[in-house]
Lab assay of single mutants.
Amino acid sequence: KAKLLVLLYAFVATDADTICIGYHANNSTDTVDTILEKNVAVTHSVNLLEDSHNGKLCKLKGIAPLQLGKCNITGWLLGNPECDSLLPARSWSYIVETPNSENGACYPGDLIDYEELREQLSSVSSLERFEIFPKESSWPNHTFNGVTVSCSHRGKSSFYRNLLWLTKKGDSYPKLTNSYVNNKGKEVLVLWGVHHPSSSDEQQSLYSNGNAYVSVASSNYNRRFTPEIAARPKVRDQHGRMNYYWTLLEPGDTIIFEATGNLIAPWYAFALSRGFESGIITSNASMHECNTKCQTPQGAINSNLPFQNIHPVTIGECPKYVRSTKLRMVTGLRNIPSIQYRGLFGAIAGFIEGGWTGMIDGWYGYHHQNEQGSGYAADQKSTQNAINGITNKVNSVIEKMNTQFTAVGKEFNNLEKRMENLNKKVDDGFLDIWTYNAELLVLLENERTLDFHDLNVKNLYEKVKSQLKNNAKEIGNGCFEFYHKCDNECMESVRNGTYDYPKYSEESKLNR
């Protein structure tokens, strides 16, 4: 008799109507990190870190770059004969040098303040090359056809396309004075040089004057150069050297050249137009028929994500570079809930034993079982409120962090190594801060989002509990077992918050 009662009780308990509160689960393989956990499985997430590029040089917003090819900045601007293909260059979106560009200054020497000139050019998007001192009329008392084997072109001695090597005419090199007034309405880049012979005999042979000088002056520039005559090792078949100089001439300003020898005179100059998204990159990537809004030396990035880990040097509207390998923000729920887990921000989770793959029309909802059958029903209101809140948060985070910009490298010469090392340390410090901030932001927001979901499920549970009161009992896994019969209409009233407690209280009292 006792065995019969136990079996009867078990049958009745199993047959009781139930309603459970749960949440969506799926077959997603997404994982995120939080402050407290690593690799948390979630139903949905968004990636904030771009880690792919196309490996190509592309047009930037429809404008092609200027590819210097086998030449570098120095060779292009001075007019190395091997860089003749660059003479027609007028406009570009950015400038590309190759790491091993070999054609710079063909006659050995240095372009002074080269690093600063590169910085200036990094904001130039177009130029006009014009004859600042016409070759045939500007130097009537001097020979202007100086050439050298060091600047050979097609097997013949030649010289820079933008400079003139002035030497004596006959047996004399009379003092020369020439000036140019900038009437271009924009900055003009003027380049010139000073020749330093290897011996007094060479000085006399070329310029006749043993104590020659070169003077260059404008409103913002004033220097006097004296040739340094000295024996030097042979470089590119030359014992002599040429140093090259430049200045930016403001609109309306005048530049005056005065010399008694050794002047490498300007022939062509450049009127410059600035462009905020221009820059110089060093890259071996090849040019393709493609378009982008962000270019790196590795390749083009076409992404609206706020961060990238491809390269710190970028041109155009680019994500911020960070050292992170993963920045994924959760938008959905835990896919593998932890039992009795309390989140960092106070939300209680884990009283549900598992997510439901059968509930596909919402994030949170119900599963019921009664004599009429069983089924899932999503709670659309709480789901939609959660979707709206999380979507707004993700968009806000992306908008705040998605300050796209150009980031170019800084140039230092060989004598500025300590400054370069200090600059690298400062840049590394800023990069570490950006990386830390980005990672911390994602970790915190992921923790908040998961706790937010847990709290929403808990609130749904409490909503049902407050309606049923003692007409049902909690069975410990997020479910309630009714003390009365609850048909589909009754189940719907529980879900929509209109459950009639008094209607079922007498039946429940008897069954309790």
Rank of each mutant, 00 (worst) to 15 (best):
E97L: 08
S172A: 10
T226V: 13
S123K: 02
N72Q: 11
G104T: 05
E82R: 03
F144M: 09
I264K: 00
R90F: 11
T167G: 13
E97M: 07
G210A: 15
K70G: 15
A64K: 14
N183L: 13
S172Q: 06
S205R: 01
A105Q: 04
A212C: 11
C71A: 08
D15T: 09
F133W: 10
L57P: 09
W267Q: 05
R154W: 08
Y244G: 04
I21A: 09
D84T: 13
L166V: 15
L77N: 04
G75Y: 04
E136H: 10
H196A: 14
W76R: 03
S273N: 11
P88Q: 03
T98P: 08
Y107T: 08
S200L: 15
K59R: 15
K1I: 14
E119S: 11
P81K: 07
P81S: 05
G210C: 01
Q203Y: 02
Y207I: 03
N54I: 06
L176C: 05
E131D: 13
N80T: 11
Q204C: 01
L272F: 12
Q238R: 11
S52M: 09
S278Y: 00
P134R: 11
I132K: 06
L191H: 03
S52H: 13
V188R: 03
H153V: 12
Y245I: 09
V147T: 15
L5V: 03
E115L: 03
P233N: 14
N47R: 09
V12T: 02
F133V: 03
I112C: 04
R274Y: 12
A10S: 13
D15S: 12
G240D: 08
C83W: 12
E250F: 12
L48Q: 12
V96D: 06
K184G: 08
G75F: 03
S278M: 03
P140F: 01
A25M: 06
R241H: 08
G193Y: 01
G275I: 04
I63Y: 01
D171M: 09
H142G: 00
E37N: 12
I63W: 01
P140N: 10
L166F: 00
S200N: 05
R236P: 00
G69F: 12
N39W: 07
T98N: 01
A105N: 08
E277I: 11
P197Y: 10
C83G: 01
A271M: 14
S218Q: 12
L111M: 15
E102W: 03
C106V: 01
P88N: 12
M242I: 13
N211F: 11
D237P: 00
A271E: 09
T74M: 10
A265K: 05
K38S: 02
S205H: 11
F276C: 00
R223M: 03
R232G: 05
Y221A: 05
N141P: 10
E228C: 10
L5F: 14
S198W: 11
Q203L: 02
V124T: 14
R274E: 07
T254F: 06
E116T: 13
H44E: 09
S199Y: 07
N222V: 14
K186D: 02
D17R: 11
N100C: 07
